[in-house]
Design a protein around this nucleic acid. Structure first.
Length: 761
DNA sequence: TGAGCAACTTAGCATCTGTCTA
DNA sequence: TAGACAGATGCTAAGTTGCTCA
């Protein structure tokens, strides 16, 4: 079956960045070529089996290519294989000492990751080396292959095991005596799920892939709750109202201070921000307060006081700063860890959000509103039934509720004071097994789409001309999501910024410009502008004109569609397929494709430049933008000045070289006023080379800075690029993984470090 | 069937921290 | 050794998705 129309996918050019988008277009063409061959020739062997083969460890590669990077975390030390923990029949908790009490000194030091690896690894090797588990030999249809891929890859199975009845209790905080008792009860508890067994029994493909909503996520869960910001300390600095100092109560002063420190931000230029602040602050001031409007308030004294405090902090000695940091760590240490089924895991956000003024993005109707202080009685704690209930850190107060819900992964939650129908959750850090497993499942699903994409594209191409308007809209929307990496686009209420995604595009967001060109112009997530002019296939162009006919600005372009209809349709095409999978698929596919086409022989710097280039293309595809930093132009000017100076030096050196060759002394004084030494021609040539290299480096820096000033590379690296592509490429090309990933990302992607060097997305 | 909710992921900006340079 | 700077990390807003219930 043909995957694309014979003339290939539409070529896309973003008006604002034509060069890069031409590349984008080329990439897509090449990508589709490859996909087509995949369908016609059947998918190659499923790569997960490659994970199971013996492969050169990353640490070995690092030893080969780096000798001077010892201070950084070694990937070997960071290996924390989920494969290991998942595959064993022995529950993790059974392999770790029970009765582990969080917050005790035994847990005050982070368990080294290599130790975690050693806890799990022994039984893995034997299983992984089992040739019988390889799926290389399987040559079956595309869909079957994809299914096999899932089944063979044990790691894709949700952590969750059997369904467990949710037990909910409402407890009051217990005494320490009670905590000890509960800990003892916990001693005997052991996780009972066996993932591997579950998979083999289950014949339901989608169930295997699902992240397991409503399924049991843990058996034992121990943690210490969350920490709250210290109470407000009044400073007593008065604001001026009509030029006269006004005394405020501590509550009024606290909110005034939150406003004062916003002086240099763009929020202060927005009337909604100031209006919302005034409404909330006025309530605190009371009706008969001397302050009757915001316009006559001068917050400068508080602003100045804050600046002085900031400077004082800056001026502290290194020792003082270090002491403060250590004190903070000491206070927070016990909140930083949780024990899940006997495994110590890092907690992500264990601090309650401090009070502040709401900083909604774009034109948000609630910006400037007071986000009140979160108190323990706002917070629901989720913890193991037998675990000690965390002590409430604020004396005299208590948690809102204690639950023991083993079907969720949050440790604590509270209602967002700004949007009361939204919850804020405290969960494990990105480096945790839960997040790692979920990440891997995400990439496996995206990888699975590779096997289906040909059929999906053929289906939506057919749908472009469907007489059923709903089917036609689904087809065009899917095309946009696939080709332009648009987000699904849920409905939003009036209390949010007015942004759109694919399903919520308005008539005015897409303009037909003739010659099959469509101009997209809208605000997407975070009110980031999406502006792109693309050439589409003729039936798509015609369909858009049809959808716009007889509609007014403000009307929905896809009036027969919403995200649930779209996703329901996608699920008919591939198990568990949703709109967002396309973004992951296209991002990872592009990286894989570009790295493999563009990496040439060269030094590490050249190879990392190739990676950065590919990363940038993905960021452009996903429309990951950032605002130009405040001092960008200053930095560029400074670099240009330095280049000018160096060029003057270079000029002088060339004269000196000329003179030296004629055995004449250098010019008496150099341009910077310093006396010069008498150097031989070789030494001057060396200096010339060094100076030229400096100039070249600075010119490259300027180019890179300009090139990336509005592109955010991090978002795609963290959320869209399958780390196995990166790790395998690093292994193949002897690039130290530390050149690509920070320490934190190495921890987050620990599950990917064992990948075979031949891995392809 | 659709609204509302809950859970979790994705996102950009602010702040912190470590390194480089004068 | 201080200040500048870049990169790393933290924070929290803003999405997507799936489920429940009327």
């Amino acid at each position: 079956m043909a995957v694309e129309a014979s003339d290939g996918p539409a070529s896309f050019k973003r008006s604002s960045a034509s060069k890069s988008n031409q590349l984008h277009s080329e990439m897509r063409n090449s990508a589709s070529d490859r996909k087509e061959s995949l369908l016609e020739k059947k998918i190659p062997k499923c790569d997960d089996s490659e994970d199971e083969e013996d492969n050169m460890s990353l640490s070995a590669i690092r030893m080969k290519v780096t000798h001077d990077n010892d201070k950084k975390a070694t990937p070997n030390a960071l290996k924390k294989s989920y494969d290991d923990s998942d595959d064993d029949d022995i529950p993790l908790s059974a392999r770790l000492p029970h009765n582990t009490n969080l917050g005790e000194s035994t847990l005050s030091v982070k368990r080294p990751l290599d130790e975690i690896g050693s806890l799990h690894s022994s039984s893995k090797k034997s299983k992984l080396s089992n040739p019988g588990s390889s799926i290389n030999a399987k040559q079956i249809s595309v869909k079957s292959d994809a299914k096999v891929e899932e089944e063979e890859d044990d790691d894709d199975i949700p952590i969750s095991g059997k369904m467990n009845k949710v037990v909910k209790l409402v407890d009051k905080p217990s005494s320490s005596k009670k905590l000890k008792n509960v800990t003892k009860v916990n001693k005997g508890a052991a996780p009972s799920f066996k993932k591997k067994e579950k998979v083999k029994k289950s014949g339901n493909e989608s169930e295997q892939l699902s992240s397991g909503d409503g399924q049991k996520k843990w058996t034992t869960l121990v943690h210490n709750g969350i920490i709250f910001p210290p109470p407000y300390k009044p400073h007593g600095v008065k604001i001026l109202y009509k030029g006269k100092p006004v005394t405020l109560t501590p509550e009024q002063e606290e909110v005034a201070t939150l406003f004062a420190v916003m002086r240099d931000t763009e929020y202060m230029q927005k009337e909604i921000f100031k209006d919302n602040f005034w409404n909330d602050w006025r309530e605190l001031l009371g009706e008969n307060h001397v302050i009757q409007n915001l316009k006559d308030c001068d917050f400068t004294p508080i602003y100045d006081w804050c600046q002085i405090e900031k400077d004082k902090k800056k001026q502290m000695s290194l020792e003082e700063k270090k002491a403060l940091r250590e004190e903070k760590i000491k206070q927070e240490e016990k909140y930083m860890w949780a024990i899940v089924d006997g495994v110590k895991e890092k907690v992500g956000n264990f601090r309650a959000e401090p009070p502040g003024l709401f900083r909604g993005r774009g034109v948000h109707p609630k910006m400037g509103k007071l986000k009140r202080r979160i108190r323990p009685n706002d917070v629901v704690i989720n913890i193991g039934k037998d675990a000690p209930i965390p002590e409430c850190p604020i004396p005299g107060e208590s948690w809102a509720e204690i639950t023991h819900d083993d079907t969720v992964t949050w440790l604590a939650k509270w209602r967002d004071p700004i949007k009361p129908n939204k919850l804020k959750n405290v969960s494990l850090a990105a480096s945790s097994s839960w997040k790692g497993q979920s990440d891997k499942e995400k990439y496996q699903k995206a990888r699975m789409l590779k096997s289906y994409i040909g059929n999906i594209r053929a289906a939506y191409t057919k749908g472009f001309t469907s007489k059923d308007i709903t089917k036609q809209q689904i087809a065009v929307a899917t095309y946009f999501i696939d080709k332009l990496a648009l987000r699904a686009g849920n409905e939003k209420d009036d209390e949010e910024a007015d942004t759109v995604g694919c399903c919520t595009l308005k008539v005015e967001n897409v303009t037909a410009e003739g010659h099959n060109k469509l101009k997209f112009d809208f605000l997407g997530k975070d009110s980031i502008k999406y502006e792109n002019t693309v050439e589409v296939e003729l039936p798509v162009y015609k369909a858009i004109l049809k959808f716009q006919k007889d509609k007014q600005p403000g009307d929905d372009l896809f009036d027969k569609l919403d995200t649930s209809i779209l996703n329901a349709h996608l699920k008919e095409l591939m198990p568990n397929l949703t709109a967002k999978v396309f973004r992951t698929f296209n991002a990872s596919f592009t990286l894989d494709d570009m790295l493999n086409k563009e990496t040439k022989d060269g030094d590490v710097a050249e190879k990392t430049a190739v990676y950065q280039h590919a990363n940038k293309q993905v960021a452009i595809i996903c429309n990951h933008q950032r605002s130009v930093s405040k001092n960008h132009s200053a930095q560029i000017s400074k670099l240009n000045e330095k280049i000018d100076e160096l060029q003057a030096v270079l000029k002088e050196l060339k004269i000196d070289l000329d003179r030296a060759r004629k055995e004449k002394p250098p010019l008496k004084r150099s341009s910077d006023g310093k006396n010069k030494r008498n150097l031989n021609p070789e030494a001057i040539e060396k200096k010339i080379a060094q100076t030229s290299a400096k100039i070249e480096k600075m010119q490259r820096d300027i180019h890179t800075k300009e090139d990336l000033k509005t592109v955010a590379l991090g978002t795609s690296k963290i959320n869209y690029l399958d780390p196995r592509i990166t790790v395998a490429w690093c292994k193949r090309h002897e690039v130290p993984i530390e050149k690509i990933y920070t320490k934190t990302l190495l921890e987050k992607f620990a599950w990917a470090m064992d990948v075979d060097p031949d891995f392809r997305f």
